[in-house]
Deep mutational scan, measured.
Amino acid sequence: MEVRTIKVFTTVDNINLHTQVVDMSMTYGQQFGPTYLDGADVTKIKPHNSHEGKTFYVLPNDDTLRVEAFEYYHTTDPSFLGRYMSALNHTKKWKYPQVNGLTSIKWADNNCYLATALLTLQQIELKFNPPALQDAYYRARAGEAANFCALILAYCNKTVGELGDVRETMSYLFQHANLDSCKRVLNVVCKTCGQQQTTLKGVEAVMYMGTLSYEQFKKGVQIPCTCGKQATKYLVQQESPFVMMSAPPAQYELKHGTFTCASEYTGNYQCGHYKHITSKETLYCIDGALLTKSSEYKGPITDVFYKENSYTTTIK
């Protein structure tokens, strides 16, 4: 009895394709271990004539594949690729409408935090270190965002349907971005203890939790000093293409032309909904596939993004 075979390709990165001759009487799992086709788990399936010449994702289970996976995804987590594939199996079914010149995501599976993050990423200057993220990001900007969303979920250790947080998501993504040249110098002034300067680099240099107003941050924000008295913390120097200011959701007025974009969060910790506000020729609110415009805006804002380049204080 002759062994019926077909020729397929296996890959971990969709760049390096490895030619395989597979036995049609055995499952993919018996031949390769966990195997995925377009995100779908085909591990328990036997090869079919229609699979001839198709590319299958496999887990990096030998040295060659491990090197290829690390170079593309910059992670050695053995569960990463499987999590990416199972997320992709959902995100490829989502709709990605162009809204006001940006790629958004039609609401499904509690994905409003991903839509808000995706919209924000198209408006701030950011370059990702893992080629996987950078490639998928370019495709997302062009309207094909399924891979990018699935990668975000995998890097953030999230599953489809789980509630997510924009600030946490951005923080994970910033860790995989090139923020080497970003720098922030802060000064804390206390009447009792004097003053202390701190220099922050990388992710810490672009994120701040405690106030939404970048102007206020430049002037000074009140913080408790270690001595128990009130101290003032203010920005001395900022070198970065953008800054992200966050605070627990509270009524906040966004003035046209003073910011790049913002995240609105309605609801409580267990259950809520994100919308995205962007400042173009007027203010726009993007909620999944829905767009509304207004000249002014007041609502429960939790993150505001500002364009920056270089700032030095005039406070002496």
Rank of each mutant, 00 (worst) to 15 (best):
T64D: 15
Q197H: 03
F217A: 10
T312W: 08
M244L: 07
I45R: 09
T10W: 15
Q270C: 14
E308P: 09
G228C: 01
Y234I: 11
Q20R: 12
L179A: 07
T211S: 08
Y172A: 11
N147Q: 12
L212P: 05
L200A: 10
S86A: 15
S25A: 13
V42F: 14
T5A: 14
M245N: 06
G161K: 03
K93G: 10
I315P: 15
K275D: 01
A231D: 05
Q216T: 09
T91H: 06
Y84K: 08
A115N: 10
H74W: 04
A142F: 11
G299N: 06
G164D: 00
T19K: 10
L163I: 04
A177C: 15
T75A: 12
T10G: 06
Y96L: 06
A117F: 05
S295N: 00
F305D: 00
T27K: 07
Q237R: 10
T91E: 02
G267F: 14
Y155Q: 06
L212A: 06
V188G: 00
G210R: 06
Y96I: 08
P130H: 06
S104L: 08
T159A: 14
K191E: 15
E215G: 09
L119R: 01
Q237C: 11
E68G: 02
F80K: 05
D165C: 15
K183Y: 08
E162I: 02
K183T: 13
Y306H: 00
A289K: 07
N268F: 15
H48C: 10
F259Y: 00
T211C: 12
P34H: 13
C193R: 05
Y155F: 00
G39D: 08
K92M: 13
K218F: 01
Q196M: 13
Y57V: 12
C112E: 01
F32C: 15
M24W: 10
K298H: 14
I45P: 07
T260V: 15
T27F: 14
G39M: 09
K316C: 15
K219S: 10
A69M: 14
K44R: 12
P97Y: 09
F128H: 02
F9A: 14
T314N: 15
K218L: 02
L254Q: 05
S263K: 00
N61V: 11
Q197A: 10
E2K: 10
T260R: 05
L151C: 02
P47R: 04
